[in-house]
């Protein structure tokens, strides 16, 4: 608990000590953290290997862009709508996906991710989506009287949303629902035997995962003030999976490590070559699967346990 408070204090102080562009980058870290968490709820906690969350990120982003430009809604009011839309979309996509075990689900969601940009370009919905061009809109300012520049304000706004989403998500996973979600991953037959409606929970988990990813997409759109089909390729979906794997499968805090990685590694690797970030992603994906399947969080836990073997026991005792 102390650790979380310290991290939060640090996060609040951050926009006042780093420069403008860095503030933007850290805003994106928060954004990716929500998306990675969303992917982890489905893939890590529920064991449904989904490779197409970029589609829900796109839906969230487009919902915001369309509502702001066509309906003139304020940015903050669009986020709950984006969340709801994505939950429904995820739930509906989850219904057929229920019948799909392992490779088929991965295959279907992979296909969804590949087809997303083309669907977004469809000329039938061009008047809403702006077709290939996408939608450009204005940057929200800090409310009058708040002594912050717009970057700092957006950062704090995202931090606020991030905190809400992680508190909600962590509570969900810790409670009854979370135990059901995890039970389905570990042993679907036994879970069904204990009276868990596995199909309902799997669809719901799909919806929740899409909701988180959609909120991230919504924030991402607000922060960059731009949406276009080619930002939502297969590679976006893969970067969420990269975040999950690097941070740690089925961990909550891993999302932040994953997000830091996804945001900053490409920035440095870009200097080598345009292709380098993805080559590094790919190599690390494979390396982590060989050497550290539990990700950064798993590594940290291992280190803590080495230094203080009693830590895990005390932590568990504290929960009682």
């Amino acid at each position: 608990m102390l650790g979380i408070m310290a991290a939060l204090a640090l996060a609040v102080a951050l926009p006042f000590v780093v420069s403008g562009y860095r503030v933007f980058q850290f805003t994106m870290v928060l954004d990716y953290a929500i998306a990675v968490f969303g992917a982890n709820i489905l893939t890590g906690y529920n064991g449904q290997i989904a490779l197409g969350n970029g589609a829900f990120y796109a839906i969230g982003a487009y919902t915001v862009a369309i509502l702001m430009t066509h309906a003139g809604m304020p940015y903050w009011a669009t986020i709950p709508i984006a969340a709801g839309t994505c939950f429904v979309a995820g739930f509906l996509f989850g219904l057929p996906a229920l019948r799909l075990e392992g490779p088929y689900l991965a295959l279907t969601t992979f296909a969804l991710a590949v087809a997303t940009p083309q669907l977004l370009k469809y000329h039938g919905i061009e008047s809403w989506t702006g077709g290939v061009q996408g939608i450009l809109f204005d940057k929200p300012d800090a409310p009058a009287g708040v002594p912050l520049n717009s970057d700092q304000f957006l950062y704090l706004f995202c931090l606020f949303v991030t905190v809400i989403m992680f508190v909600l998500g962590a509570n969900l996973l810790r409670g009854r629902t979370g135990r059901a979600i995890i039970a389905i991953r570990d042993n679907p037959t036994a879970a069904a035997g204990m009276g868990i409606d596995t199909s309902l929970y799997k669809s719901l988990t799909f919806g929740v995962s899409a909701l988180f990813t959609g909120v991230a997409g919504a924030l991402g759109a607000i922060v960059t003030q731009f949406v276009s089909p080619d930002s939502f390729t297969l590679f976006l979906s893969i970067s969420f999976i990269v975040g999950v794997v690097i941070g740690g499968v089925a961990t909550v805090s891993g999302a932040f490590f994953g997000a830091l990685f996804v945001e900053f590694v490409p920035n440095y690797a870009d200097q080598i070559s345009k292709a380098a970030p993805w080559a590094i992603y790919g190599a690390l994906l494979i390396a982590f699967m060989y050497a550290m399947p539990t990700g950064v969080v798993g590594l940290l836990r291992l280190i803590v346990r080495r230094i203080d073997p009693q830590w895990a026991i005390r932590k568990d005792a504290g929960k009682q």
Binding site: L51, F235, I238, I241, V245, S273, K274, A275, A276, P277, W278, A279, Y281, G282, A283, L284, L285, I286, F288, M289
Partner: peptide, 15 residues
């Protein structure tokens, strides 16, 4: 994940 890793590697290697 390993297959996805290979996808990403060969795509970027080609680029």
């Amino acid at each position: 994940i390993v297959f996805i890793g290979l996808l990403v590697i060969f795509n970027s290697l080609a680029g």
